[in-house]
Design a protein around this nucleic acid. Structure first.
Lengths: 191, 191
DNA sequence: AAATACCCTTAATGTAGATTAAGATTTGTC
DNA sequence: GACAAATCTTAATCTACATTAAGGGTATTT
């Protein structure tokens, strides 16, 4: 619980009353490895703040292959924002890669909090802006560099994720097959 | 000017005082075709709201090729958000594809407005959330479908853009070459 | 401790899309 | 209205990455 408060305080300090309100509207939950907190076809019911552990969010294509669109580890948020707000069924899965603890907020509670703690609008605006910039860089990189370059910048940008994720998951995030990532890695060690 | 007010009112109504504040902090500007409102190496000084016309935002790769990461037409926003907030040089270009009119807000003015019109935090939070969802769908599609499928869904999702943009620009947005888009189009007409 | 599921690698073959080049057509500019 | 510049197309050749298949290694689960 303190993890979430600390997270918000990094943006704007909260007072006691605000913390009380917040505590009344969130739920802590433990998640097992491989457990899904969102499945295709279901509405995304929560914004989830990751206290510990690691998640992947992915979609499945026509051929049944998974494509990771985001990881979320400590102090990161994960949700299908589109489904969460529209209440329409999601096309995505969110699954724990490691056993995890999350703090979850339901839609009605988040809306209540937005009304009663206006600075949360500011805080989440900044959080999403940062995520948007990150994602935009990823799009540009996907189109303008090779798999090898993308792998190297993944290692640089997320060293913390790189050494706790299996390469299959990284490959899926980079948009390549595990076999090709294996070749890229071999070529790199030869250099 | 009215265009911007209408745009905000679609999210939350503004009162007279708020509209006054807003009008004092924005500037209208006419932009010629091919004129750039952001160039690589410069700090992004404005959030730009497009009243009329159309822009592309792109990066240039090692080989000198352009990669479109976003278009913006009427009632859309365009800026390098990362550079705008961090005041660091951008790696992107924003260029008018058609003669355009924009309403621009500078960083200090936007920060002033966020403080004095708190509902703007809410409004921009929602705007960015929507753009984030759109971008996330694009990432998933890029990894999980063929160039032909991506072209077809571009036509569906942005029919308005599709018939005013040259195919070279669409190809760049889809992450393929103009030559290959030409082939895709030929194959489609044969079906 | 064994069983099982997952993960990593190698290598042969296949393919979506890139590159190069060239001509035809359209569009913008003076 | 004419010139220049950008755009679209076709087709041959090339390449980054996918697919398939198979063997060995390493965690998790029971």
């Amino acid at each position: 619980m303190q993890a979430l408060i600390n997270h918000f305080q990094k943006y704007i300090p909260l007072n006691e009353a605000e913390i009380q309100l917040l505590e009344g509207r969130v739920k802590e939950r433990k998640i097992k490895r491989k457990q899904m907190i969102l499945q295709e076809g279901f509405v995304c019911k929560h914004y989830s703040f990751v206290v510990s552990g690691c998640f992947k969010m992915y979609g499945i294509d026509d051929k049944g292959y998974e494509h990771n669109i985001q990881f979320a580890a400590e102090n990161d948020w994960i949700a299908d924002i589109g489904s969460f707000h529209s209440q329409k069924p999601s096309k995505l899965f969110i699954e724990a890669i490691e056993p995890a603890e999350v703090i979850q907020i339901e839609r009605q509670d988040l809306y209540f909090l937005y009304i009663n703690i206006p600075k949360l609008d500011r805080i989440f605006k900044v959080i999403i802006e940062n995520k948007f910039v990150e994602l935009q860089n990823r799009v540009l990189q996907t189109f303008s560099s090779t798999a090898e370059q993308r792998y190297l910048s993944f290692l640089e940008q997320y060293p913390n994720l790189a050494n706790r994720l299996p390469n299959t998951q990284i490959a899926s995030y980079l948009g390549i097959t595990p076999e090709f990532l294996s070749k890229v890695r071999k070529d790199l060690t030869r250099k």
